[in-house]
């Protein structure tokens, strides 16, 4: 269902030199993941939940301001959640439980709360991930995941994926241009007859390119591990800066449950 990830992996990154850009990638990964966990852990049916969501949003906007990520970039990141917005809007109509009247429509109270919370939580976490992607390039993400002890095989697959997505994506786009300039319109099921073989030849082209590149790498002494630079050390201050986002979120959550 996802909307197209146009523009390849590099399009997500916004080059910059803000304090957020300079943070070590693994500290940012931990920070964003913890933040998402805190957001998801917010109770759905608590009366103060909307206030907490607003607090989280304020935190994210502050980070975006520090990182100089434009609002337009954040909004574009939100496109992926469109299918789920539809689902969230439907929830108040189909949920069970006591009903309430809003503008003459009979809506389920729990459905309203659930739909609203799904929308808020998904939006907040998409914004957090968008901020991460906007301030960390793909190579940095890879380095961060490596530091966080992701198994070597996965790191290898990921590094090849990062390097070849643009190449294969370009191939895909050329095939698409070729199809459409011959009058192809993918509007009905018959389109599959065209798209299937296209995907088949895409696979063969990707794979054979991979074979060639791999042979070239082997002949240049590839041993199965790419040499990486010296391991970057993140000191206490760097961690403190990175974790200030999730810690502030925890504070918002704690404040809500104490006062609410």
């Amino acid at each position: 269902m996802g909307a197209g990830h146009g523009g390849g992996l590099a399009a997500a990154y916004v080059p910059g030199d803000s304090p957020v850009h300079r943070l070590e990638p693994h500290t940012k990964l931990v920070a964003v993941l913890t933040f998402a966990l805190v957001v998801v852990a917010t109770p759905v049916h608590a009366g103060w939940a909307p206030l907490a969501y607003a607090g989280f949003l304020l935190l994210l906007l502050t980070v975006a301001g520090v990182a100089r990520v434009r609002p337009g970039r954040l909004l574009r990141g939100l496109v992926v959640e469109v299918p789920f917005v539809l689902f969230a809007v439907l929830l108040p109509f189909v949920s069970r439980g006591p009903r309430t009247d809003v503008l003459g429509l009979s809506l389920s109270e729990s459905g309203l709360a659930a739909g609203g919370s799904i929308l808020a939580k998904a939006t907040l976490s998409v914004l957090a991930a968008t901020l991460l992607a906007a301030t960390t390039d793909a190579r940095g993400l890879l380095r961060g995941l490596e530091r966080l002890r992701l198994p070597t095989v996965l790191v290898q697959i990921l590094s090849f994926m990062i390097r070849y997505t643009d190449v294969v994506g370009g191939e895909l786009r050329r095939m698409q241009v070729a199809r459409e300039s011959r009058g192809f319109r993918g509007r009905h099921l018959g389109a599959l007859k065209v798209l299937g073989p296209a995907a088949g030849s895409l696979f063969i082209r990707s794979y054979e390119r991979g074979e060639r590149v791999h042979l070239a790498m082997l002949s240049r002494g590839y041993t199965g591990r790419l040499p990486s630079g010296p391991v970057a050390v993140a000191g206490g201050r760097a961690w403190a800066t990175a974790l200030s986002l999730p810690l502030a979120a925890v504070a918002v959550l704690a404040g809500g449950s104490l006062l609410g």
Binding site: G4, Q156, I157, F160, L172, L192, Y207, G210
Partner: peptide, 19 residues
């Protein structure tokens, strides 16, 4: 291992093809 990487790229690419 690099082939696995290319397979991942391929899956990623065809997931962009909506029907």
């Amino acid at each position: 291992a690099p082939m696995a990487g290319l397979t991942a790229v391929f899956v990623f690419a065809v997931q962009m093809m909506n029907f």
